[in-house]
Simulated assay, not measured.
Amino acid sequence: MPLHKSAEKRLRQSARRNARNRARKFELKGLLKNVQKLIDTNADKGEVEAAYRSAVQKLDRLGVKRYIHPNKASRKKSQLTKLVNSYSEKA
């Protein structure tokens, strides 16, 4: 347990920030899984593209705000784009 007031405050801040970061990363995972699920179930091309756009938007935001490393965001966007493009060619 912290012994100083400032250490107690840092503990509270750290817990809040940790919860916020985990929520954002969890939301991103859900968006990525949603795109994959739509592709696996042969969903409508428009549905897949809408899910793709929201996932890319979230990746951009998290990369810029440094919730995830910008290179990781770029890599995930590239992987997602390849996946959606291959689905679009099949459909």
Rank of each mutant, 00 (worst) to 15 (best):
K65P: 00
A43C: 06
A51T: 00
K33I: 00
R12A: 15
L80P: 01
R16C: 10
S54E: 10
K9F: 06
L11I: 00
R24M: 15
Q57H: 07
L38Q: 03
A15R: 09
I68D: 14
N42E: 13
K37F: 08
R12C: 04
N34A: 14
S88F: 10
L32R: 02
L80E: 01
A91Y: 06
A15S: 03
R22N: 13
R17W: 07
D60P: 00
K33R: 02
A23G: 02
R20C: 09
A55H: 02
A43R: 04
S14R: 04
K37N: 06
K33D: 05
A7Q: 10
G63S: 13
R61W: 13
R66A: 15
L3E: 11
V84E: 05
S78T: 09
G46A: 15
R24Y: 04
R53W: 03
K76M: 14
E8I: 07
L3V: 04
A50Q: 12
N71E: 05
K90R: 14
T41C: 03
K25G: 04
K5S: 05
N42K: 11
K77G: 04
R10P: 00
S14C: 09
E47K: 09
A91L: 01
Q57F: 14
E27H: 05
I39N: 01
K33V: 05
L11A: 12
S86D: 07
E49S: 07
E89Y: 09
H69A: 15
T81M: 12
S6M: 13
P2W: 13
I68P: 01
E47M: 09
K29D: 06
R24W: 13
V35Y: 04
K77I: 02
R20D: 10
R24N: 10
E27V: 03
Y67P: 01
R75I: 06
E47D: 11
